[in-house]
């Protein structure tokens, strides 16, 4: 796995500012994710962590600062098949019934675009469903699934494009224990295969052993960028006036995965 000093980071956000209405949500956020890294974005509700990832993929316009994906400025970035996005959702369902396979197949569109899917595309969709352990239910309606299974469908949809980086917004929200373990093992396989991951989490939980680096946001500013803080939720999170001594500039690798 390349060292953090690799010249071209997968995600690079510099001095990002964003507002919601009149309220500043991001107030100069720097965020870098290198190839092969698993970075968690932590923070309390309203700290700007969700806005930060959504501006990385261009869903929230920045009022200042820059974002680069794979070294290309966001505005000129076109290779969306390299990015797998898992939005913050409690359901994968829409207004009309759809099967798990139909929803996951829509993730492949970043590669097929307007052409018809071929054999390789169908195989990739099947593989993505298998990765999250839902092969036996591929033809079931997503309406019949539990909260955790919905998240697994959303992750399979992102994996269907065989992306190089996974960007996930609260993938563990409302997920039962059994599904959390399946999600963690899916993620572990992806990371072992060289995938880069940026994920927003409310707490580290079942994913803790996978995380290389944690970035803690508070009121739209980076409070911590380094190894995952211990006892997240009591000490490192906003609301608790406690600054980590290692909150310095240089990211520290824990070596957990190398």
């Amino acid at each position: 796995m390349p060292e953090p000093s690799t010249p071209e980071p997968v995600i690079s956000m510099r001095g990002a500012t964003a507002t919601l209405g009149a309220r500043p949500v991001l107030r100069g956020v720097d965020l870098t994710v290198h190839r092969g890294e698993v970075v968690a974005l932590l923070g309390a509700n309203g700290s700007g962590k969700s806005t930060a990832v959504r501006s990385v993929i261009g869903q929230v316009p920045l009022t200042g600062g820059t974002v680069e994906l794979f070294g290309t400025p966001l505005r000129r970035f076109r290779h969306w098949a390299r990015v797998g996005y898992v939005p913050q959702r409690t359901t994968a369902a829409g207004g009309v019934p759809a099967t798990i396979r139909e929803v996951v197949a829509s993730g492949r569109l970043s590669r097929t675009k307007l052409r018809l899917p071929g054999r390789a595309d169908r195989a990739a969709v099947d593989r993505a469903i298998e990765l999250v352990g839902l092969s036996d239910r591929a033809k079931d309606s997503v309406n019949a699934l539990s909260g955790g299974q919905h998240q697994r469908v959303l992750i399979a949809r992102a994996l269907a494009a065989e992306p190089e980086v996974l960007i996930m917004d609260e993938p563990m929200a409302g997920v039962d224990l059994a599904s959390q373990e399946i999600l963690a093992s899916t993620l572990r396989e992806q990371v072992a295969g060289g995938a880069t991951v940026l994920l927003v989490l409310h707490e580290l939980g079942a994913l803790e052993p996978l995380i290389d680096r944690a970035i803690v946001l508070r009121d739209g500013c980076v409070m911590h960028d380094g190894p995952p803080p211990e006892a997240v939720g009591q000490h490192a999170l906003p609301g608790h006036d406690h600054v980590h001594p290692h909150a310095a500039s240089e990211p520290v690798r824990t070596g957990l995965l190398t």
Binding site: Q59, W80, A81, Y85, V103, S106, G107, S110, K113
Partner: peptide, 10 residues
Amino acid sequence: QDEEFARVTG
């Protein structure tokens, strides 16, 4: 189905 996701597929 999911407009935001569709935008990120390009």
